[in-house]
Simulated scan of single mutants.
Amino acid sequence: MENNKPDNTELEPGKAHIIVDIIEYVPNSVVIKTIIRKSTGNISIMSFDSGEGLSVKTSPFDAFAQIIEGNAEIVIDNVSNHLESGMGIIIPAHLPNYIKPNGRFKMIQTIIKSGYE
């Protein structure tokens, strides 16, 4: 079950933050909090409760996903990648990808839009 709950409040600039504590787990949900939103890209933190993932999608932009708590399986163009806390992966533009449920985890996703004008 995919239940996205976006939070578009950006973090206070110039102040240090404990990234893993910025977002909480919500039962049966994927929670998304945007940290920075600019015309050239954005950075979001996501929390996934056990059994929650994201369905197949394709983006016109490259993205970088970094696991900050727990572990996850990210499938890119039918290739499975198991990531643990501290690991990251570039998800290339135009390739189908999804996040497979694999227990609770948190991640940061950075989308870069420049260079696609």
Rank of each mutant, 00 (worst) to 15 (best):
L95N: 07
A63S: 15
I22R: 11
I43N: 02
S114D: 13
I18S: 12
E24T: 14
I108L: 15
G103S: 07
G70A: 06
G14Y: 10
E10F: 13
M1R: 08
K113I: 10
V75G: 00
N4H: 12
N3D: 08
G103W: 04
I112N: 13
E52R: 15
E84Q: 15
Q66F: 12
V20M: 09
I67Y: 06
G41K: 02
M87R: 02
D21L: 12
E117Y: 15
F48C: 04
K113A: 11
K113D: 04
S47Q: 10
D62Y: 02
G53S: 05
Q66M: 14
I43R: 03
A63Y: 01
P101Y: 04
N42S: 11
V56R: 10
M46C: 12
I18E: 13
G88D: 02
K15P: 06
I76W: 01
E69G: 06
E52K: 14
V79H: 09
P92Q: 08
Y98W: 13
K33W: 05
N71S: 15
V56W: 04
N3G: 00
I18W: 08
L11F: 09
S44N: 09
S44E: 06
V56Q: 09
N3L: 09
Y116M: 13
I89Y: 05
F105H: 15
L95V: 09
D77G: 01
N97E: 08
F61Y: 14
H94M: 15
S29L: 09
S80I: 10
I45V: 12
L11I: 15
I90Y: 03
V31N: 08
I67Q: 04
S39F: 07
S50F: 11
L11H: 07
I68P: 07
E69Y: 07
I74L: 09
R104W: 02
I35R: 03
E24Q: 15
L95D: 01
M107I: 02
F61E: 00
H17V: 08
G88Q: 02
K33Y: 06
N97C: 11
E73C: 09
P101N: 06
T34V: 09
H82G: 02
G86R: 00
G14I: 03
G51F: 08
I74G: 00
P101E: 05
G88H: 03
L11R: 08
A93L: 03
I89G: 04
L95K: 14
S44W: 00
A93C: 06
G70I: 06
V26C: 07
V30D: 05
S59I: 01
Y98M: 10
N8I: 11
M107K: 01
Q109L: 15
D7E: 10
G53D: 05
